[in-house]
Computed example of a mutant assay.
Amino acid sequence: MKGISVKKFGGPEVLTVDNNLPIPSFTDDELLIKVSAAGINPVDTYIRTGTFPDPPSLPYTPGLDAAGVVEKVGKNVKNFKVGDRVFTTCSQGSGTYAEYTVSSPLYVAHLGDTLSFEEGAGIGVPYYTAYKTLCILIRARAGETVLVHGASGAVGIASVQLAKSMGLKVIGTAGTPDGMKLVKDNGADFVFNHREEGYMNKITDAAPEGIDIILEMLANVNLDKDLEMIKLRGRIGIIGCRDEVKIAPVKIMFKECVVTGVILLHTTECEWREMHGALEAGIKYGWLKPHIGLKYPLAQAPKAHDTVINNAGTMGRIVLQI
């Protein structure tokens, strides 16, 4: 099969197309999925450098998210059949930047007929991260106010959509006028430009009741300010961070706030099943609608990896068309 093979850790240039990769084998407890589209996540780039904890053995095919059709089913798999349209994320099977991927059914959900395969590839890490943060770790409640930093990115858009479906007041930030419009179009009540001087003051003015929840996509830049804005006993979910953070713990003590990290790799089986049910319902009833910002062919995986990190302002999801 054709796919991306990484033979050494490094920059985007280590992502090379290999037309002779073996179709991955699967066990009686797994699915073989014919991939139509794969999602690009910032974490994919961290893994590629070899600096992410527990790096894969070389060579490897990268990618956590994909959408496609079930090609074969292990004899112990009960909830899927050949021909099902599905999406998958975070499987410990094989990478998704290839024509086929293997996954445990625990990490697979039904796509149905409403969304395209590109949109299906846009669900994965962004929507599961948004759900786990808001519903499992943060336990958001209707009527609360949430600030979503970097709301025009894939996780940001997912968070805005989910928060609005739950009845929260949503404040988002973005770095460009187009990004701000995208966030607003996806339901945010207020949107501010995080490149603008004094935008934090505008956020607090828009939320005189205080901010109950902050979803932080770049903790090394914003966390110290978040601790000043968060309400007494508020909650901060750290979804992204690219460097060390210096904060004064007394700020956490004074606010009695909860600061929690978020990573899908520690999700329990019960949590996966809860999230699958919620996201499948979101697809069926219409609140879940990934915004696909850019599409690249498989051969342009290096460009996709560069773009997801180095951009003037994120605009939804980047996908590879397999």
Rank of each mutant, 00 (worst) to 15 (best):
L223C: 03
D178T: 11
I236R: 04
G167V: 10
K202C: 01
I211K: 08
T267P: 00
L168F: 08
S159P: 06
V245T: 14
K164T: 11
L227C: 10
A163M: 07
A158F: 09
K184L: 13
V146N: 06
K169Y: 14
E274P: 00
F190Y: 15
M275R: 00
G234V: 05
V245G: 04
I238N: 02
A188Y: 09
V148D: 01
K246R: 11
C241S: 15
K164F: 06
A206G: 05
A158H: 07
R242M: 14
D178F: 05
G277V: 00
I203N: 06
R195L: 12
A278W: 00
L232K: 14
D243A: 15
W272Y: 15
K164L: 12
A188E: 13
A174L: 11
I230M: 11
M229G: 03
V245E: 03
A206Q: 05
G277T: 11
G156S: 10
A163F: 11
I157Q: 12
M180A: 08
K184G: 14
E271S: 07
I157N: 06
M253W: 10
D189C: 12
N222C: 01
V183C: 11
N186P: 06
V183Q: 08
G150E: 08
G234N: 07
K225G: 05
S165W: 06
T204L: 13
A174D: 07
G198T: 04
K181H: 07
L227E: 02
I230A: 10
N186D: 04
D178K: 15
L227K: 03
H194M: 05
V250Q: 07
T267C: 08
C270P: 00
V262N: 11
N193S: 14
I247W: 00
T268D: 02
I230W: 02
K225Q: 15
R235C: 07
F254E: 06
I230T: 07
K169R: 15
I263W: 03
E196F: 02
